[in-house]
Amino acid sequence: MIVLKFIGYGFTAIIIGLLFMGIGRKYTARIQRRYGPPFWQAFIDVTKLFSKQSLSHNWIMDFGILMGFAGIVGTILFMPIGPWHFFSLMNGNIVIIMYFMTIGSLGMAMGVSASGNPNSTIGISRALTLMVGYEIPFVIAVIGLIFVSKSSLLGTMVSLQSGGIMNWNIIKYPFGFIAVEMALQAMLGEKPFDVITAPSEIASGPMVELSGKMMGLAFLQHAAQIFLETGIVVNLFLGGANNIWEFFLKQFVLFILSLTVNAISPRFKFEDAVKWLWTWPTVFALIQLLIIILT
């Protein structure tokens, strides 16, 4: 029974993630005044990738990619999706979520750097440094929320925000939301911060040597990651949801917000990206923290 629930969670994450990507590409195309691919284009891409032949340099590359994808899928179980929650005891423990996500990035990093291509390793070193960049504002904002809700479980945070829009955290702690929103932009790797897979600079960064089903797994991991990160922010600030569709809708709103920024902004130089992340979002997060501590 648990296994079925597990597979259910996994597939919802992937399907919703791919749907978001498809609609996202359509949305960006529309911004650029062109038709853009059908919204289920992401599904086609994934099936094509899985049908293609693939290569790998050594067993560590396969193990790494699998670990990456497993890390992200594993984290989804810890996040409450609307009314569903997989674990009753550890329903959305933020510390677990943040550290479990690092398995994802560790796995991907290990798999990709085992390929031995300098482009991919430069991409990974950028990805890790960027991770430190966006973790700080995110953590400061989250700490503020933990202090307020007296528990580090997303489940309790969601229950605190229930009942009407007025007591959503986005209203009560706007600065915190702004900081997390900026950090989310970097987490998803969207345009101002897509220094990791910078196609023009380092030939799609980490994904240089991935082909066929390896690339498919990386694709699915990215989709699941979108689902996860937007889900976390929804639970933190938009008060979760009492039915599943409302949850997906809120996620989608967040994703579209970040896509709009992505469609119209150029890419940061790498050091400036980290510096920017350590100034503006961190300032907002600190303001939020001070407000919480002082009141």
């Binding site: 049908s51 032949q53 290569l55 396969d62 890390g71 179980l77 089903k213 797994l217």
Partner: peptide, 17 residues
Amino acid sequence: AFFFAFAFYLIGKKRHH
């Protein structure tokens, strides 16, 4: 989660070295 990912891994053709 690792087995879940491994299931996907098995779908595609056998990768070559």
